[in-house]
Design a protein around this nucleic acid. Sequence first.
DNA 1: CCTGAAAATCGTGAGAT
DNA 2: ATCTCACGATTTTCAGG
Lengths: 156, 156
Amino acid sequence: MSHSLDPYDRKLLMLLQENNRTSQRDLADAVNLSPSAVNRRIAALEASGVICGNVSVVDPAAVGRPITVIVEVQLADERLDLLEEVTQRFVNCPQVQQVYYVTGDFDFLLVMSVSEMTEYERLTRELFFMPGNIRTFKTYVTMRRFKQGLKVPIDV
Amino acid sequence: MSHSLDPYDRKLLMLLQENNRTSQRDLADAVNLSPSAVNRRIAALEASGVICGNVSVVDPAAVGRPITVIVEVQLADERLDLLEEVTQRFVNCPQVQQVYYVTGDFDFLLVMSVSEMTEYERLTRELFFMPGNIRTFKTYVTMRRFKQGLKVPIDV
DNA sequence: CCTGAAAATCGTGAGAT
DNA sequence: ATCTCACGATTTTCAGG
């Protein structure tokens, strides 16, 4: 695989995490490289998977999904095949934005984006009450999202 | 404000949430519009804040931050000025990706991206042990991130 | 609000250093 | 590895329906 990222790559990643619409010319100016050097580096970062996506961020409220719900899920049985089945159910649900499998008092933490609590209620039936393997779940409704991003800190 | 999004806008948002590098011509083909119509709509969506960002997604492991930690924070006092102070502390920490203020057993839920547990340990001192106002916090280390995105489901 | 074409900008490869 | 330059593609603007 590709070896350690040099300071140029890191700076580019920082900038692209802020705004990936910045033109390669401006990026070039910012890091003191030529546009084509920037072009090659970005291509390499994408090919190697360091950059694993390029997306627009949509304001949930603007598309009718103002409610973010956080759910702690506790499994009944951690057998591998059952775990797989549950995971798929979570991942395939479009309202589920994030699925973390964690150590501690519960097993999964979900972040969900819903339009109203009735929608969430309906989803709980599909996701948690369905067949089996889920012992309990705990719901937390967010009153406010103070920060929500995927930005990873990158040391220079 | 901008009026309700029509089906064209919704489709565009869906596509841009997947990949905002898709050329406006391809987008135009996908939604059956002219490229310039697509251009104007995207500009409007950005101006109105429906699209609130355009970012590259970086693989945390590839930049030396393989560990995602989830923290439940319980405050000692929910006085507004203290709350504000704590919030700022969380938001300003680069390792903190997400800050949710929630109802229920605890007050804040944080998602953090760190390089090692020692880094996390150091951050707990800055974030939670500092002056006052934090009663307790509970740490959950994620063994696996099955899904991590900000994609909002958009109904057509 | 759309289309279609013109104008400006940008991304990308070739060749040289 | 890099840069410069030139070409092709894309974005953006503008006239007209």
